[in-house]
Design a binder for these strands. Structure first.
Lengths: 203, 203, 203, 203
DNA sequence: TATGAATGAGCATTCATTCAT
DNA sequence: CATGAATGAATGCTCATTCAT
């Protein structure tokens, strides 16, 4: 019994790949419809606009992964465990994307490029949500003496950045060859990263 | 003695401000020419295309700031000092931009949006150059026992991310209010950040 | 015994109301099918095209009302009685429409907007038919000395215009308030109108 | 010395003819640009939109002709002279149009077809202005005993209609042959029309 | 019959770039 | 050198109509 993908899913899949590989603005409706193997008009049977397709992708592929991220805060575990769980969720979410471009980070940083207020709000909200959770984890860690005394905002920003690039290392696929003699790829372990955050570079 | 700015510089200055404030795609050639106080056609007397203007700005305003960054590597100082110098250069460069948007990071992440291969190459090259220097600093630090044993690629990516966000914290101006009770603004010191990188979060 | 309306009639009724309330161009096939409570495709089982629906409505709702208008001409009554009967028929026909827009006049004047040659011909034919009857009434009145000596074409055109606007005064509902102090509405009598046509403005 | 028409005028002339002959909706921007002998994009150098072209035509070709129509009201002449002057202005204005379609009446009645609020307002205002002036003329005539006692609104509507069709008799060029034996064309005199309005049909 | 999913021709508008003056 | 008028390729979206089921 062959499961036929719904047209809606065909469109989403096609759009997803195109947005990732060519970017939002370089992806034309006709591209999506051709990639989906359907007519141009059919796209509009399932989505109101190009923005709407993007918004749907954002919600289902990205936002939904963070629905329960605030749960971390109320758990009865140490702050470093919370930090680990936070990173775990990030990893789990982003590992779903098989992009060779950084979809998530890209999305967030490019959010100004969109005009759709609903979409912009969604993106901003997710950024704020994640930032807020991380901020609270760190603040709590500082308060309870687990973490060093420091500006929690600074720590949050820094660690957000570190996590982003840790996750999105694929951003630089072209240049990795230039950087390292061996054509290394990302194969480090999460613990190692967490250790870096918690204990720093110094021996 | 009044120094009259050359038309070329008028164009570059106008474009610079517009790119920063409205973004590349929202800045039209006519905007640039009007801001520069010259005719639309005149822009093309000095630059081949809109991309060419951007490329020139990238080279003079951004790339040039990193001309000597490799010098850090050959200095006879400890690895953590090298790391500090690297960050100093980053801070010095980016502090020149008075953007309320993160020009540099934005640039890097949005680089796919450009078609001009020369421009794309320039952007990628700068990213690679910086990444490479940081990578070598860290690798050396690990080799000489100053830094902990870890994947240098992981560390480089993480720290790159941390630096980026440390620098570009202004990216989230809207959301800061949501995140912190007090309407805090970025006022931390570089040492605090460096300490975080070197010693981590843990007490 | 419940009379179930045929699908064909459901379509016509739905289209009729929509055409009147939203106009021909603002009425979409999907609107008609939904208002009729049937599927979009079903519309095409009963009518070849949107134009065809309109044509049918024109014929049944409008044109048919003038089937016997030429009978007036052969009646053995005075010319002013004939004129009265002509106007009576007009009033009777148009009073069937409960539009707040002038369907008939609108139709005639907007006829260029249609492409269907058959429809255009039908509209033109009705206009010509009515015009012709009125022309003959007036010409006869002049010939038999009942009406003043004048160009019958001029009189026909003028009186056609007067009748049209007399009937379709509702066309200007918005502006009436600007025009008259009291927010008057049309409540005059036909005799008054007929008197104006026959005896003119002068005392 | 050849007077070269400005591009703006070329566009307006081309649009004018096309709007009249094919109607607003059937006239495409490409039609206008081709008729004007210029590129499609050039149209937008002179006008913001298709609507804007129409609005400009309406204002310059139609509305402007009625700028001083209210002056009639304050003149020290009899009511029937005022009526004559009103009609004179209508004739003068509309005689400028060499359409074989009724531009003005068409315009007013089709005004709903437009979405541009400014344009709709302009059309409605003109209708109201003319209607209001005529209404005041008639009301005054009734008050001072020059005209018969009757509903001034009824008279205004009727006479507006008569004037419209008197003026726009060209609306039925096709059908005239059907109506009259001789292929008559409009060649009546204004007095005859005025006489009809003032004294009616009856001898 | 009845359906509604699928279609694609058609169109207003934008804007980087050209080039005659 | 300087200009800005002129250009046209490019694109998201609409909706009457078709047709497989």
């Amino acid at each position: 019994m062959t499961q036929t993908k719904s047209k809606r899913d065909l469109i989403l899949d096609a759009a997803y790949n195109l947005f990732i590989n060519k970017g939002y603005w370089d992806t034309k409706i006709i591209d999506i419809s051709e990639a989906a193997g359907i007519g141009k008009g059919t796209v509009y049977e399932y989505f109101e606009s190009k923005d709407a397709i993007f918004l749907e992708l954002f919600r289902t592929k990205v936002e939904s992964g963070y629905d329960n991220i605030t749960d971390v805060l109320s758990k009865e575990i140490s702050s470093d465990k919370k930090l680990k769980e936070f990173i775990d969720i990030e990893l789990e979410n982003t590992s779903k994307y098989t992009f060779n471009k950084n979809f998530l980070l890209d999305l967030m940083l490019k959010s100004d490029a969109f005009r759709n207020p609903e979409l912009i709000a969604s993106i901003h909200n997710l950024i704020a949500k994640k930032f807020s959770v991380l901020y609270q984890i760190i603040e709590e860690g500082i308060r309870n003496g687990e973490f060093i005394q420091m500006d929690p905002l600074l720590a949050t920003a820094s660690i957000t950045g570190a996590i982003n690039l840790y996750i999105s290392f694929d951003l630089f696929p072209i240049n990795l060859a230039d950087v390292t003699a061996s054509n290394k790829t990302k194969n480090w372990r999460e613990e190692e990263f967490l250790n870096l955050l918690l204990n720093g570079l110094k021996t």
